[in-house]
Structure formats: structure tokens, C-alpha cells
């Protein structure tokens, strides 16, 4: 019985071999923000359960949400939602067989990336201006 011969087989290229493209970055970010939002649903559940439980539980929720770390998490959640939403709209376009041109796909992806940041700032500006300084 001869030992199996070790052959140096070529491996498929990994991430570092590819040039950066916005479509690639947005694809990765889409998945990461999706997982972030998945974990963030626990916050939505906490908000609703606190509201269903009573004033004390709700006050505790507001204290945590209003702390600097709470605001940071909520800000991240807002951006993840805005980015995932706009980024996700691209898939409807692509499902319809549209916007596959390299240049078009890049423009659409950059728009989603920038739009996500703009939308996040707009939402927070609206929240702050509606209720004064938080």
C-alpha cells in the first residue's frame, strides 16, 4: 500500500487577491448590517416589553437608551437599518435584470452607501431638533 502522494494543488484565490470594488464592499456590508440588525431586534423587543410592563420598566429602558452607550448603539442601529434598506433596494433592481452594467452597478452601490449615511444623519437631526438637545 503506497502512501497517498501529496500533490500541491492550486487553491482558489481568497479575499486579498481582489481589487476593491464598491459592489463587493456593499455586499459584505449588507450581510454585516443584516446580522447587526438581527441582534438589534432584541432592543425592539425590550422597548415593547418595557412599554407593556409599566412606567418603571419603561423609565429603566429610557435611562439605558439615553446613556452615551445607549445612544451609540442606537446610532449604529440607525445606520445599519438605513444602509441595509438602501442597499437592499438594489437587489430588486438586479432581480429584474437591470443595472448590471459595471458603471451603473457602481453608481447604484455608491448611492446606497452615501444615502445610508445621509439618511442616518437626517433621522438623528430630526430626533434632536424635535425634542431639543437630548
Amino acid at each position: 500500500m503506497a502512501a497517498p502522494r501529496q500533490v500541491e494543488r492550486p487553491l482558489s484565490p481568497h479575499l486579498q487577491i481582489y481589487r476593491f470594488t464598491i459592489t463587493m464592499a456593499m455586499s459584505i456590508i449588507h450581510r454585516i448590517t443584516g446580522i447587526g440588525l438581527y441582534a438589534g431586534t432584541a432592543l425592539l423587543a425590550w422597548w415593547l416589553i418595557a412599554l407593556a410592563t409599566g412606567p418603571d420598566a419603561y423609565a429603566f429602558f429610557l435611562t439605558v437608551a439615553g446613556s452615551w452607550i445607549g445612544k451609540l448603539v442606537l446610532f449604529g442601529f440607525t445606520w445599519a437599518l438605513a444602509n441595509h434598506l438602501l442597499s437592499g433596494l438594489r437587489y430588486f433592481w438586479w432581480d429584474a435584470g437591470l443595472a448590471f452594467e459595471k458603471k451603473t452597478a457602481d453608481i447604484v452601490s455608491w448611492s446606497a452607501a452615501i444615502g445610508g449615511v445621509v439618511l442616518t444623519i437626517v433621522i438623528w437631526a430630526a430626533a434632536i431638533s424635535l425634542r431639543g438637545a437630548m
Partner: peptide, 8 residues
């Protein structure tokens, strides 16, 4: 956003 700062 509309409920930010609102009471219970």
C-alpha cells in the same frame, strides 16, 4: 423619532 423624549 416622534416618541423621542415622550413620557410613558
Amino acid at each position: 423619532v416622534a416618541l423621542v423624549g415622550a413620557d410613558y
